[in-house]
Design a protein around this nucleic acid. Sequence first.
DNA 1: CGCGGCTTTGATGTTCATCAAGTAAAGTGG
DNA 2: CCACTTTACTTGATGAACATCAAAGCCGCG
Lengths: 229, 229
Amino acid sequence: MGLISCKCEGCELKSLFFKNFDTEEIEAVCSQKIERDYKKGEIILKEGEPIEEFIYLKNGLVKLFKSTNTEQDQIICFAGPLDFVSLLSVFSNNNYQYSVAAIEDSTACSMQLSKVNQSMNNNGLFARSILEKMSETTDKILKTTLELRQRRLYGRVAYMLLFFSNEIYKSNEFELPVSRKEIAEFIGMTLENVIRTLSELRKDNIIKIYGKGILITDKQKLQKLSELS
Amino acid sequence: MGLISCKCEGCELKSLFFKNFDTEEIEAVCSQKIERDYKKGEIILKEGEPIEEFIYLKNGLVKLFKSTNTEQDQIICFAGPLDFVSLLSVFSNNNYQYSVAAIEDSTACSMQLSKVNQSMNNNGLFARSILEKMSETTDKILKTTLELRQRRLYGRVAYMLLFFSNEIYKSNEFELPVSRKEIAEFIGMTLENVIRTLSELRKDNIIKIYGKGILITDKQKLQKLSELS
DNA sequence: CGCGGCTTTGATGTTCATCAAGTAAAGTGG
DNA sequence: CCACTTTACTTGATGAACATCAAAGCCGCG
């Protein structure tokens, strides 16, 4: 786990996030920023821990999840660059309600929550930016959840494949960043049935499978499966 | 549908929501407030419509839901007094992503979104209040969704009954404010199976049913069913 | 009264979880 | 580097959970 102080001059996030700040304010917040690298599999935030930082993802891919009393976790969503991974419970709880783990090598920036709070109180526009970002995030999560709920096994697996293809990798060929078990935890089905469904899709010449590698050969059919079932 | 201008002096919401405002600011916003009554069944907001107002519930009970391409809607959550029913998509979309309907006679206050926005820009503390409220709301929704997803038929029905008993009516005896079909739309099962399960719970002397009236006679067993299944 | 919406129950088949057993892949220690 | 262990993946068989179809009862309302 590397640990270097972030050079704000080159940070592409500044313009997105701090568009409502003047230089002085940016300095005040950014001087406290810490950039950190996480390897695939590493835990970034743990459910139950006190919230002291405000974290966003600079690059990589993470999963938000919640552990249950069974062995099976529940994966809430995946988040990519420029997503604010600690956004969900930051402002209504003192402790994280969800865990976050890197599913690809990732870099995250964090700043003290107290500083962010202070800036928000002084600057309504800044608070509003966060509000918008948060609204977006939760809207997306809720949408995905409801979409998945409408479908069954086949439709859910198809939806998941299309999600990674369209939203994350923007290609018909990609490496699944998650295990079969994690897919199951995301779509709310069992490991075995996820595998079975992938195999069936392969037999029907809709996808090709090379371990974690996926090649979507018939996107139209996959799309239809995702809509119908 | 009644329509009177809201008298802010008696409004219990003021202290909750506007705690960060001085009197002048409160006046500025409240002078624009409109109070409106909705009868059970009436639509308050419709998915797809432009967002122009900021609405919160003064009393009553509403459901948030999303229509699908089937006949079955998806109910996202129920909201009671002091909940900000338009909070979900207000800040990230120009149009409502969900519909809201009264499931009991309700009163809602609304103000122009543009005024609220203006106040937020000028007052970080106010923006922060909204942020907290919103974070709370989405956290609750997500929690419920994930809890339901963990359970199956029996557990979901039990969870739903306990929700109305504990969260909404705070009594073991209450009238279900929703139809059997709406229960199904909330817990993501079919109408028939909801009815069957309720009947089984009745046969097992866990609840009594008088049409929409429910009396929970064995809360412990219901609790256990909700946890296990 | 009769109609339409809501509710109930039963029968049937589909979808899915679970159990079991085996293979492949990946990490571990000598 | 190889034997060993562990973890991830795969397939089949079985029964449970659930959706769907069908039919009928109830209840309020015009």
